[in-house]
Design a protein around this nucleic acid. Sequence first.
DNA 1: TTCTTCATGTAATTAGTTACATGATTGA
DNA 2: TCAATCATGTAACTAATTACATGAAGAA
Lengths: 219, 219
Amino acid sequence: MATARSMTTTSYAILGLLAIKPWTTYELVAQVERSLRRFWSRAQSKLYEEPKKLVALGYARAVQEHEGRRPRTRYAITPAGRRALKAWLAEPGAGPELEFEQLVKIHFTDSGTKQDILANLAATIEWAHQQNAENLATGRRVLAGESPFPQRAAINHLVGGFLTSYYTMVAEWALWATSVVQTWPDNPTDAQPDPRVVRRIVRDAEALDRLTSTANRRQ
Amino acid sequence: MATARSMTTTSYAILGLLAIKPWTTYELVAQVERSLRRFWSRAQSKLYEEPKKLVALGYARAVQEHEGRRPRTRYAITPAGRRALKAWLAEPGAGPELEFEQLVKIHFTDSGTKQDILANLAATIEWAHQQNAENLATGRRVLAGESPFPQRAAINHLVGGFLTSYYTMVAEWALWATSVVQTWPDNPTDAQPDPRVVRRIVRDAEALDRLTSTANRRQ
DNA sequence: TTCTTCATGTAATTAGTTACATGATTGA
DNA sequence: TCAATCATGTAACTAATTACATGAAGAA
């Protein structure tokens, strides 16, 4: 039986989409593909079952519609759903969780070859390029006045700003790492560390420490 | 039965650690906590069962030891394990996958309050501060010549460089977002988008597009 | 008419987490 | 000798993925 305890972040994410407008499951899948998947990615089959749970909890209701001869279900949020969403938004969320397989491979690359790392870094750059291209297309549509939800523009800018910074950071790091690895000998085990690199990293980390220290922010 | 197909990224990550030196499970857990968990986080119980799978596959062998009266198991990589690891490192890895619950909440904040966002952003900044503090401590130990695996220094710098950039990016974004949201009226629905913000985001995204375009990198 | 894509799902499996359990060691 | 924490695990559960299935609509 579905209880309020069975609500996961994914459930609330779908509930949040329903708070914007009613969607069919197919539309939900497409919408997640456009936005949420960049920072909360879930398989399509998951998106098909979450709305049913929301209905069972009384947070959404299902309306049967017809597209030509075939039936389809559109989901809409209920007042109880809005209350549940509001309560969840007021709770503190978890910080970013990263899974970065290419970096795992680089981390163990003393068992591999220089070519392996360079190939992985090239893939990382290509990944950032792809993600950013889709993001850029969205940004250009917004500039052209074609946002689907203009009342959400200010919020979307916060998210868009994050994603652009994120992809930029990944790409710049991968380009830097490529330039470093290119100076390595063929066998990664023989690579000599550059002391200037550690010093720069520590200096950057110290700057960040000052930037984020509570005392500093309280001024 | 364990087959080569049952090897996940997590399995290879543990195998990669065994390639550095033999570890007991307890030491593996501690080591993952120090490094891998930042970009490949797994529960402790998972780390206890992976080495057994590696032994079943012939990629590791278990040696019984004694610490005082209690027995413990130390795992070492086998030649077959080294070959499997090498083959895996040569395959292309997956790009970064991010799960960022605080951003999910911000994304749906038109159903919440301005205070909710500000609280989440403060938590994000605090998160970056914490992560960076641990990272900085490691960096300082390296500067002091206290690295546990000096032969891995050059590789560790690549990873350390990524993490510092990552935490910096998260913190700078959260500070920027905080300054933007502070200018909002109390009801997030009434927030007016600043057109300069979109233009800056699009300009940044265009710069990244040029930076990462294949044509550009081929020069 | 056939192929492709749109659209809507279900079933089987698994990777991973949470919670529990317990003895050994160490310091107060 | 008591509490804390070090150290080593297992059992139960679940969130999520992969793979499969199928009919409708539209294009070639």
